[in-house]
Design a protein around this nucleic acid. Structure first.
Lengths: 181, 181
DNA sequence: GAATATATGGACCACCGATCCGGATAGTCA
DNA sequence: TGACTATCCGGATCGGTGGTCCATATATTC
């Protein structure tokens, strides 16, 4: 990649992070390009789709959540580890308003730029869930995909301004359901 | 209202029902107008916002759900009545892809055309919930707003193609959490 | 310094919801 | 019946969206 292209790419990523943190994942791409002092075509060349841009922006966050799951796998009680990680996942999405819809679409869409990250995340959750199930502290009739869906649903609640005040409480309600044997 | 206006209004509503059933609540208004053989301006004059159109389209459904809650209030066990009604609510939303987002926004937005219907729905749910709580068969740390949020979240799951296959199962998981004392 | 490969962004396109306003028409009254 | 008016209609237009094309500018190589 040419030096000027690299610079544009990095700058775009930085500006996109700011704008998306302010306006959510549905922020206008043209607006991001404008704020970066660049044409829309340039943004779209570096990141052909909104998903591609978000993937570049979020994949370190995904890695952190996966790494956190790894740590928790060998520490504390299986049920505390599971719930703690779920809480981290839901809390993280609040930083990126609207991201849950994209993640829900990406988990089964192998073409999506976010697909790999979502699958990795689901696998990390599955390991924590299985450990708790083996320990007899999580219900055995759900799997990693169910867990992913529940995280997405709770994160979605936090995304809806009118329902967000209840999100934390409802997290506890759902968590209690997961931990019921 | 003039006879021609009434005819256009009714026809628009009929066409909108078909198109929205096919494409979800985010269907293009211009497309609906075109299929009705009418200008976009005409549609927007009869229904100034998308919410207004949906309210006109859905309010009989809302009434039916509210009436159903009324019936259930005096029949069967309180917990069966509650769960049965919740299932009806979630099942109903599958007919109108994407409606949950609008409902979540409308419940706290007194300006929304859907606001009144949502509030009525929440009140109906609250009555069923309270009855179950009084009977000691539903957890007492949730209220009607929590219930509304849980319905919305489950309905949202059913709206996401990748997660929909799990929606029924996760309904049971969440229902079990509500019925836990 | 010239040649070449690559990156750029303005000018488009089709679509969206929204608004304006001149023309068509239904309902009314003489 | 005929004319008048209040109402309704929809094409044209506006600013916005994501997406594409291509002449121009520039970094890199020789």
């Amino acid at each position: 990649m040419r030096a000027d292209a690299r610079k544009n790419r990095d700058h775009l990523l930085s500006v996109a992070g700011t704008v998306i943190a302010e306006q959510g994942v549905e922020a206008s791409l043209r607006d991001i390009a404008r704020k970066a002092g660049v044409g829309l075509a340039t943004l779209l060349r570096h990141f052909p789709t909104r998903e591609a841009l978000l993937e570049a922006l979020l994949h370190t966050s995904f890695d952190e959540l996966t790494a956190r799951a790894g740590e928790l796998e060998t520490s504390g009680s299986p049920e505390d580890a599971l719930v703690s990680w779920l809480r981290d996942c839901v809390a993280w999405t609040t930083e990126y308003r609207g991201v849950t819809v994209l993640m829900a679409a990406a988990i089964e869409d192998t073409e999506s730029a976010l697909h790999a990250s979502c699958v990795t995340l689901r696998a990390a959750g599955t390991r924590l869930l299985t450990r708790a199930q083996d320990a007899g502290t999580a219900r055995t009739d759900i799997d990693g995909t169910d867990l992913f869906a529940l995280i997405a649903a709770l994160a979605w609640l936090g995304d809806q301004p009118a329902l967000a005040p209840r999100a934390d409480h409802l997290f506890d309600v759902v968590a209690s359901a997961i931990l019921a044997k």
